[in-house]
Amino acid sequence: MLVSEPELRTFTQNIFLAMGCSEAHAVLAADVLLKSDLRGIDSHGVARLSGYIRLWEKQRINPTPDIKIVHETATTATVDADAGLGLVVAPFAMRVAIEKAKAYGSGWVSVRNSNHFGIAGYHALMAVEQDMIGFAMTNASPLVAPTFSNERLLGTNPMCYAFPAGKYPPVIVDMATSAAANGKLEIAQRSGKQVPEGWIQNQQGQFTTDPHALKSGGSLLPLGSDHEHGSHKGFGLSATVDILSGVLSGANYGPWVPPFVSFLEPPMNPPGKGIGHFLGAMRVDGFRPADEFKADMDNWIQRFKSASTVDPTQHVIIPGEPELEAELDRMQNGIPLVDAVAKDLNELAVKLGVKTLQ
């Protein structure tokens, strides 16, 4: 099913309004999800809507949160999200970081008591628009086993770094710290396909290509897949995200992070509040004139794009380049939805009294 961007945006806003969100929050939440679908990151876009509704029905998402700063210095802050949508909370926190960066050169904000915040790139790009370097990360449902373990203790824990450029689009390094994001397993499940070896292990710690293995006690693997291929590095990156997002903010961390996936129940006796995020902004002109930096970024991009390649039909892909190409295409030609997602969304619409997708 191919849906135009305006139709899918209106549909998504109406779903959030049906949850009881304010118009401003519905518009913002829809914008975050649509950015994901437009950029080709289908695992984190409107396919997540049914998950938000499920958590709202369980009263784990507050549609009218009192989002506030609970601890603050000149350059740092901690935000309590009041169980609000991470799609709304993370932009609030990034705006705080940006304002602090405008005044003092950099701003750093940790968030607790939140929920799933969509793609990290959306929030990091807010800083880029101000000639700043943006940082965004979050912990997530415990689905990943650390190196040498078969116990799910960490989330896919994405991190994003975004750098402004001049004539070229910004460089956006937006990635999970696991070998693959859980959303990619869900895409494989919907399409009835297996996943590559090295993404997931079964309960006995053996590689499997079954995308349903998590539901039978399996776990995702850290970036690197196994120790011989550097999974300890992925584990270290994931741990960094978990500590900055969860331990630093007072959110939950490790196996206590409340799950977004339906087959896990919230753990007993959690040490913190909700899911945690960490966002930051640094003024480029705190280091050198922004125009000079962006000119050198253009030179950096151009040099890497012109690198010799093993296969002459291929070229070096700059981080963020495929997503931009997808966005330009989908804005013009529409956003593809697989049948399972389209069916799920229309069932959701009927349930909530919202106009279905055509």
Rank of each mutant, 00 (worst) to 15 (best):
E5L: 14
P6V: 13
L8K: 09
L8D: 07
F16G: 14
L17P: 11
A18N: 04
G20H: 07
L28K: 13
A30Q: 09
L34P: 00
K35S: 12
D37L: 07
L38Q: 05
R39H: 11
G40Q: 08
D42P: 02
V46M: 04
A47Y: 09
R48W: 05
S50I: 14
I53F: 15
K58R: 11
A74G: 03
T75E: 08
A77Q: 04
V79C: 01
L87V: 03
V88Q: 01
V88F: 03
A93S: 06
R95G: 00
V96W: 01
E99D: 13
K100D: 00
A101L: 03
G105L: 02
G105K: 05
W108V: 11
S110N: 10
N113M: 08
I119G: 06
G121W: 00
Y122I: 09
L125F: 11
D131T: 09
G134R: 10
A136Y: 10
M137V: 08
M137G: 15
S141M: 11
L143N: 07
L143V: 11
V144W: 05
S149N: 02
E151T: 14
L153R: 12
L153E: 12
N157P: 02
K167D: 14
I172W: 08
M175D: 00
S178C: 10
A180W: 12
A181R: 04
I187S: 09
G192F: 02
K193I: 00
K193P: 11
Q201A: 09
Q204G: 04
G205R: 05
F207A: 01
D210F: 07
L214D: 07
K215L: 06
S216G: 01
L221E: 01
D226R: 11
H227Y: 06
H227V: 09
E228D: 06
S231D: 05
H232P: 02
F235Y: 11
G236W: 02
T240M: 10
V241E: 03
Y253N: 01
P255L: 06
W256T: 11
V257S: 06
V257H: 02
V257L: 06
S262R: 10
G280L: 04
R283M: 14
R288M: 15
R288F: 00
A290T: 12
A295Y: 10
D296H: 10
S306L: 13
A307H: 14
S308C: 08
D311G: 04
P312H: 02
T313V: 07
Q314W: 01
I318V: 12
E321R: 09
E321P: 04
P322D: 11
A326T: 12
L328N: 13
R330I: 13
V341T: 15
V341F: 10
E347G: 13
E347A: 15
K351H: 13
K351Y: 05
K351V: 03
V354P: 14
K355A: 14
L357Y: 08
L357F: 08
